[in-house]
Design a protein around this nucleic acid. Structure first.
Length: 198
DNA sequence: AACGAAGTCAACCGCTAATTT
DNA sequence: GAAATTAGCGGTTGACTTCGT
């Protein structure tokens, strides 16, 4: 995509920060600085790298575009299927979903969901042949995100588990089939609810 | 070819959680 | 323990592209 104007929308009183699209020069500066000093203290990174950006912006740029092993575009059918299933389970917990798709970022998945998958699901819902339309409402775990949800008024026995434990990525490389299988089994069981400690 | 509508996606914003002082 | 700072998240915006007429 072509770079956008870096407009600074406001304020002549405060130091004016660059906004808008990143230039390749900025990317280079940021990447170089992080390579040497590491990705921490983003405010400092922004200053020391000589970027007229806020730390937040630097962090986002690094995480979404500059960081190594980033995959861009071409979301495969497998990945799409996984996103759908994870979204059904987790709701709009994009970072958790992204954590299960190596090289994908929460921002990319969120965008992909909003522009592709949500419409796809809407379409499916409207096609009459499926008497039970796909349920896209997250299973109580999500939006509020507040700890143990007391679900179960539908009569299902409750089996709750800790979503953070379940999605503990630190011990797993990624996209391994074992986990996927485990997940698919859970997905078959509508009685499960999540306990979220976020 | 021209134009408007719709779609896409990079980036920003506001907020909360976690960490540091 | 309180206040300040930093990190991270999800929602939203808006510039650009593509599509349909």
């Amino acid at each position: 995509m072509a770079p956008r104007n870096s407009t600074s929308s406001s304020s002549s009183t405060k130091k004016i920060m660059n906004k808008g699209a990143w230039t390749s020069e900025e990317d280079q500066k940021l990447a170089q600085h992080i390579e040497i000093h590491g990705a921490k203290r983003w405010k400092t990174v922004a200053m020391k790298a000589g970027l007229n950006r806020c730390g937040k912006s630097c962090r986002l740029r690094w995480l979404n575009y500059l960081r190594p092993n980033i995959k861009r575009g071409n979301i495969s059918d497998d990945e799409e299927d996984l996103i759908l299933r994870l979204h059904k389970l987790l709701g709009n917990r994009w970072s958790l979903i992204a954590g299960r798709l190596p090289g994908r970022t929460d921002n990319e998945i969120k965008n992909y969901w909003n522009s592709h998958l949500s419409k796809k699901l809407n379409k499916n819902e409207k096609t009459p042949e499926s008497s039970t339309p796909p349920e896209i409402v997250p299973e109580k775990c999500s939006e509020s995100g507040e700890g143990t949800e007391e679900v179960g008024n539908d009569g299902f026995p409750e089996i709750s588990f800790d979503v953070n434990e379940f999605f503990d990525f630190s011990t797993q490389g990624s996209y391994d089939l074992g986990w996927v299988n485990e997940f698919l089994e859970l997905d078959e069981n509508p009685c499960l609810t999540l306990t979220d400690k976020r």
